[in-house]
Simulated assay, not measured.
Amino acid sequence: MSGNPGDAPAGTAGGARGGAPAGRPDNGPAVSRQEFDALFASVRTWGRWAEADRGAWNGVTADHARRAAAAVRDGTVVPMARPWDTRPGPDNAKPALHYMSDLGDVQAPEPSVHKDFLAADYHGKSVTHLDALSHIAYRGQLYDGRAARESVDAAGARFGAVSALGPLVTRGVLVDLPAVLGVDWLEPGRAVHARDVVAAQEALGVTIGDGDAVLLRSGALRRRRELGPWNPDTASAGWHVDALPMLAERAVALLGGDGDSDVRPSPVEGVHSPVHALAVTAMGVPLLDNLDLEPLSAACAEAGRYTFLLVVAPLNVPGGTGSPVNPVAVL
């Protein structure tokens, strides 16, 4: 079975054109711009930290990393990056580049070498990456009220760069909602609400706490592999904005998922990525986009627990608004 309870079985969902979702999206309730701005103000943490461009990661201490490491039991290591995707598709409008720059043709002196070139316009729907605090502005402001036009220019970000974050190590929590609901995946367009988090915590035996990295599995990669790709800009499962106050109250430090965290279509009029604005710009919480959470889902189910040590090491790019990453969970 796939999607929400009552949806068509896996293999019949998605309509006639590959993996394109069919039917009316369950992305509501709708939120007005006025309601969204009030929500933005309610979760905002501007002025809280001296090192503002680290945002919520100021609250993650060495003790958080120590406790997460101490909870490792069998040492199972699960990488979460998708393969480097060089093939164009409805969910990969700007394919990553990979080509060989040296095939070892020079015969002397030894040894011969092989070299390759990598590049990516990674802020899309295919490359697994980390969003730094300079990536998202709302009403012309970055996190902490910094003026976006004064903080980011053609040379990069002078505030909120990914290089300010450094390696991120803390406890990860997998909110495996398809496992909770007994389905293969959430249909694109399905919003995840605060009540879903409450149900997931009870079903999975976890409690989200301060400094945690919360990873939402919608099953998007499983759906893609079984039904084919679709355009996630048009429809994707993800957080509804009504879940963010609860996550803010828990003082989470990182959000991520097998999409880009936002439910699409957006339920907020005039705001295409409201969860990005709330998390990154209001709360100072970086985002992990486009994870492959299928192996982690299987590993957590086998281990009977949904918490783990999470390690994310972004590239050290001064002025970068993010970085491709290969996050690793250790159970």
Rank of each mutant, 00 (worst) to 15 (best):
D196K: 14
G19C: 03
R250I: 03
N231Y: 09
R222K: 09
V173Y: 10
S218I: 04
P245W: 10
S2A: 12
L118D: 02
D7V: 03
V180I: 05
G104V: 06
D184Q: 14
G3F: 01
D153Q: 12
V152K: 04
T128Q: 00
T170K: 07
Y99S: 04
L221F: 10
S297Y: 04
A253R: 05
G145H: 13
G219D: 07
A191N: 09
A38I: 07
G319R: 05
P318C: 07
A50M: 12
A251I: 09
A194I: 13
E110W: 09
G19K: 01
R264L: 06
V106A: 14
T86N: 01
V113E: 12
L186H: 06
L103C: 11
Y143C: 12
E294G: 07
S32T: 14
F308S: 03
P167H: 13
A155S: 15
I136V: 12
D26C: 10
T12E: 13
G145Q: 10
R190S: 15
V206A: 11
G156Y: 03
R171V: 09
P178L: 05
A203W: 11
Y122F: 14
D85Q: 02
A164W: 07
R44L: 13
L291V: 04
P232E: 00
P90N: 07
V127P: 00
A13G: 13
D233A: 12
A50D: 15
V198L: 14
P95C: 03
M283P: 11
A96T: 00
A243K: 09
V328N: 06
P88M: 06
R158I: 12
P267C: 03
A52S: 15
P5L: 02
A38M: 11
A10W: 07
H276Y: 12
R224Q: 08
D85G: 00
A132R: 02
W84F: 02
D153S: 08
A277C: 15
A10D: 08
V192S: 13
D7N: 14
H272Q: 09
F159N: 11
R264K: 13
P265L: 08
H135E: 12
E302P: 04
P9E: 01
S42M: 07
H123A: 03
D85M: 00
N4K: 03
S32A: 10
A70M: 09
V330K: 02
D116F: 08
G18T: 07
